[in-house]
């Protein structure tokens, strides 16, 4: 086919501009900004002064930032285990030959198409409500005492459960398509050898899902590192540390809030870079630990 230079230029220009405008320029400038003293995010570059690693050193010494990193680690690890467990469980159940598979699959995925703000509102103001909430009505049914799910001791766990509930569907779909790609003759051969369903899962399904696990863990890391809406919904006004996460701290430090005495955009940029480095590290470690499927099927 004839190659038309003018056509390539015409068709690519707009897309390349979005790339430069939205990603290349801002990423480079954020990285540079993190090494400068920048008070206000709107300050012109002439007022910037070189700070070296000061933003990072100060940031890592700030207790609220450390708390936020520990919180995000908990969300990533505990939430990850819960979400992946249920996602894999439902994927296995749905491929075991149950009826109404498409209905169940669609119903479990549903929370993913709903605005996170609406989802969080449902959980915070109904499910966890101390007076008329779902959980306490449920406890009442069994004659148990009501629990305040949103007090300092419970709020982090409550938020995590609500977040995981909404996330399961997406990861279930990825596991599901992974399991469906495994050829059925492998299972048939195993059946002839007399394996039970647990053995089939442990020795066939699980090892063959390695690549899918890697995909899921990468997506899970990307979405938890930028955790934001749920904290804003569960602790809208409080600046207490129980639910704080890095992006919330970044927002407060750059755009100001009650708990922050002085805005500091340079520090905000350092938080952004820290999160991006975490993401790259997770990705690299994952690539090392989980080798891509060397099997072709």
């Amino acid at each position: 086919m004839r190659k038309s230079k003018s056509m390539i230029v015409c068709f690519m220009t707009a897309a390349v501009i979005t790339l430069l405008f939205m990603y290349v320029y801002p990423i480079i400038r954020t990285i540079i900004m993190s090494f400068f003293n920048v008070e206000s995010v709107t300050a012109s570059t002439s007022t910037w002064s070189l700070a070296g690693l000061k933003n990072y050193i100060d940031l890592y010494a700030t207790s609220i930032f450390r708390t936020s990193m520990i919180n995000i680690l908990k969300i990533w690890l505990i939430g990850g285990i819960i979400t992946m467990f249920f996602a894999l469980l439902f994927a296995v159940i749905l491929t075991s030959g149950v009826r109404f598979k498409n209905f169940f699959r669609a119903a479990i995925y549903l929370p993913n198409v709903i605005s996170a703000v609406a989802m969080a509102a449902m959980w915070r103001y109904y499910v966890f409500n101390a007076r008329f909430g779902f959980l306490n009505s449920f406890l009442e049914l069994f004659g148990l005492d009501a629990v305040n799910w949103l007090d300092t001791g419970h709020i982090f766990g409550s938020m995590l459960v609500a977040y995981c509930f909404g996330s399961v569907g997406y990861f279930m779909l990825i596991f599901l398509s992974g399991i469906e790609r495994i050829p059925s003759d492998i299972y048939e051969a195993a059946m002839i050898d007399g394996t039970n369903s647990f053995q089939k899962f442990r020795y066939i399904t699980l090892p063959l899902l390695r690549g899918v696990f890697k995909t899921n863990l990468t997506f899970w890391s990307v979405s938890t590192l930028t955790f934001f809406v749920w904290t804003r919904m569960f602790s809208p006004t409080e600046t207490e540390n129980t639910t704080v996460v890095p992006v919330v701290y970044l927002y407060n430090v750059v755009f100001g809030s009650k708990g922050v005495t002085q805005v500091d955009a340079g520090r905000g940029a350092a938080i952004g870079v820290t999160l991006a480095v975490c993401m790259i590290l997770i990705y690299a470690i994952m690539n090392r630990l989980i080798k891509d499927d060397d099997l072709e099927f």
Binding site: M22, Y23, Y25, P26, I27, R29, T30, M33, V41, V222, L225, T226, V247, L250, V254, A265, G268, A269, I271, G272, V273, L275, A276, M279
Partner: peptide
């Protein structure tokens, strides 16, 4: 790319 890496600039 997380949005926090691009919004400040």
């Amino acid at each position: 790319v997380p949005a926090v890496m691009v919004i400040l600039p």
